[in-house]
């Protein structure tokens, strides 16, 4: 019963690569632009160009591609089953498509259906890879800082950026503490003869209760302590607060923005030049 050993929060891999050194704001914004663009690509070759770009970024971040894709492994059977289900049951959606590959009863597989769903599968994999690269190459602190900074643009319309970031920081800060707490509670309850993970799902659910109630009790107690501590130190959100780590855009960031913009222009032109179906 050692819970704390295999806890990975986020998936940050520390390196000293150009991608790691980028300002988190640059990474978040460029990443948002890229995944938005991903949804506007509808050709195999378009996805290929996008994939090459993402692989290049992965290479720059000094992260092995296989390592980045390892999270996809448990999902492969799921994706394949999904692909088959979609093909089998979507006949009605492609009723007027002439290119029937296979027909039996209500099952009607057309080349259009195959194309649509293979493109979705490719998009899912690319989306997954893009998300993974961002979280592998940006620390959670970096992500939070970046988000806070980006959100603060919306402060004028009443978005409490600092407060939202504080919620996130508190959540991340308390996970390890609560893991220790949970481990203690589970050991204590097991010592008293509590069963854990036995029986049917209703029984298993009931077995969680003697663990979760003490956990939440101590959680709320910690919360009350923290509230008092913060108020005693006059916490009042982000007003006039200074930071030790200042975010500053460097030449590297401008280069990244330039390169991404260049890539997007190229991608648009490429999609125009190589029309569907390829």
């Amino acid at each position: 019963m050692e819970l704390s050993k295999d806890i990975t929060l986020g998936q940050y891999v520390p390196r000293d690569s150009v991608i790691h050194r980028l300002d988190p704001r640059t990474k978040i914004v460029l990443w948002m632009v890229l995944i938005t663009v991903l949804f506007f690509i509808h050709t195999y070759t378009g996805y290929l160009v996008f994939a090459l770009f993402i692989l290049w970024v992965t290479h720059l971040a000094e992260i092995p591609v296989l390592y980045a894709l390892r999270g996809l492994k448990p999902a492969i059977p799921f994706i394949i089953v999904l692909f088959i289900i979609q093909l089998l049951f979507s006949g009605s959606l492609f009723a007027d498509s002439p290119n029937v590959v296979f027909q039996w009863g209500f099952v009607r597989i057309t080349t259009d259906a195959i194309r649509t769903y293979s493109l979705i599968m490719i998009r899912v994999v690319l989306l997954f890879l893009s998300v993974t690269i961002l979280t592998l190459a940006t620390s959670l602190v970096g992500l939070t800082d970046g988000m806070e900074n980006l959100l603060s643009i919306g402060r004028r319309i009443g978005i409490p950026a600092n407060e939202l970031a504080m919620v996130m920081v508190i959540a991340l800060r308390f996970v390890p503490t609560l893991v220790d707490e949970l481990e203690k509670i589970m050991k204590a309850q097991m010592a008293r003869g509590a069963l854990i993970d036995e029986g049917n799902f209703i029984q298993r659910t009931k077995q969680k209760i003697p663990i979760l109630i003490p956990l939440l009790m101590s959680t709320f107690r910690r919360a009350e302590d923290l509230i008092v501590a913060m108020e005693a130190r006059c916490y009042r959100g982000g007003k006039g607060r200074t930071k030790r780590r200042q975010l500053r855009l460097t030449a590297l960031d401008y280069r990244a923005i330039g390169i991404t913009a260049g890539f997007l222009v190229f991608l648009m032109a490429f999609i125009r030049l190589v029309p569907p179906p390829w």
Partner: peptide, 9 residues
């Protein structure tokens, strides 16, 4: 802020 953060945890 604190309760949301901690329940999030």
């Amino acid at each position: 802020i604190v309760i949301s953060g901690i329940l999030g945890a």
